[in-house]
């Protein structure tokens, strides 16, 4: 019985490891989606469309909750943390709207 469990664990590890290896390029960037999406969509909602903070939170929220949120109205930036990553998006003006302040 113990042996069977051991083999199952080994198989599971191999399977998960294989999946991760095959999809590494996707998995590596995945956690960044949460903060990037929230920051970018909130920035445009708030600074470009001019909707309320409440409406923009409701627009940008996803299934995975964020861990930190800072709206800086003077600097016109939105900084969001989620899944261990932080993203800052900056409003650059009426014509060109919001853009990422840094690489992922």
């Amino acid at each position: 019985m113990k042996k069977v469990v051991k083999w199952l664990v080994v198989l599971l590890v191999l399977f998960v490891g294989g999946f991760v290896a095959l999809n590494w390029v996707h998995i590596k960037s995945f956690p960044g989606i949460i903060s990037a999406f929230y920051a970018k969509e909130f920035c445009s909602c708030f600074f470009v469309e001019g909707l309320s903070e409440e409406a923009c939170h409701n627009y940008a929220r996803q299934w995975v909750p964020i861990s930190s949120f800072t709206l800086n109205k003077d600097e016109k930036t939105v900084t969001v943390g989620g899944l261990g990553r932080t993203t800052t998006v900056k409003y650059t003006g009426e014509r060109y709207g919001c853009a990422y302040a840094h690489d992922p």
Partner: peptide
């Protein structure tokens, strides 16, 4: 398919530069 979606990778992560 958020994991493999190229449109999400393009807009929000690997492709955004």
């Amino acid at each position: 398919s958020p994991l493999k979606s190229l449109v999400i990778a393009m807009l929000y992560t690997r492709g955004r530069r």
